[in-house]
Nucleic acid binder design. Structure first.
Lengths: 136, 136
DNA sequence: TTATACTGTAATAATAAATGTTACAGTTAG
DNA sequence: CTAACTGTAACATTTATTATTACAGTATAA
């Protein structure tokens, strides 16, 4: 799971707990990264309809939806991040060996199934659940 | 999920489908990587009791357990790989802000829960299930 | 109408993680 | 005692992720 997911969740919690318009610079300071990265993530959240933004002076980001309704599975989808990835594959499709030629696809399929399990689990966790966990 | 998991599964399937002693060089050729990496992974599988090895001439690796009994959750544990990882953290523990100081731990906790979901799922998949998938 | 403080995004640099290579000590069979 | 292995450490290379720089576009207010 890439850092963009963590940034998205962090930013959504921050926006909910502050209510006014928040700039990428303020978010970057709290998240501990640079404003450009924040803007890239927020841009995806905006495209997914979870937040809105205003350009220009006193601009920034603000929540669109009630945070209780935002599920982490939606956030994952918005930032286009997969929980389980396989960036390296074994074997070789061209080889005349059932194992070597087929293993990559089988492992990719398995990762897909794991991702679906994660998606299901994350659909049961909302941003306000995360806020609750922060308070404990 | 790192490539070591894929190598481990690939090698276990290969060993099961060949029955005799297999060298790291032969495995590396089929997996498409180098023998040293294979040996590192096999060494972990050996420590976990899933395979055994013989050094010296005509040495190599062979299965210890019936492949039908080997569950992918065991393989994961043997190679010490987690399905879901978070290598980058948002916020800063030292900050005087509940969100910034607590988010890293909350996200780590969430990853732990996702890993547990994956572990449960993988405990329902054996090496011989993977062989079955290869045949289709 | 112009200066200022933002977002949006592309291009590039730096860093971190994963994979590959080289080297060599230890083991076993013949 | 030689050949063909495993086991492991040290180091090099590659790839993925994160950070920086730069600048066009936009809203606000003086």
């Amino acid at each position: 799971m890439t850092g963009e997911m963590a940034i998205a969740v962090h930013a959504l919690v921050y926006l909910d707990m502050h209510a006014d318009m928040i700039s990428s610079e303020v978010l970057a300071e709290n998240v501990c990264t640079n404003p450009v990265r924040i803007r890239k993530v927020m841009s995806k959240l905006k495209k997914a309809g979870l937040v809105d933004s205003r350009e220009g002076i006193d601009g920034g980001y603000y929540l669109r939806d009630d945070v209780k309704k935002i599920r982490l599975s939606q956030v994952m989808e918005a930032v286009q991040v997969e929980a389980v990835t396989m960036r390296w594959h074994t074997g070789n499709k061209e080889k005349d060996c059932m194992i070597s030629s087929g293993m990559a696809e089988v492992m990719d399929g398995l990762c897909g199934e794991l991702n679906e399990e994660c998606r299901k689990y994350l659909s049961g966790v909302t941003i306000s659940d995360i806020e609750q966990r922060l308070r404990l």
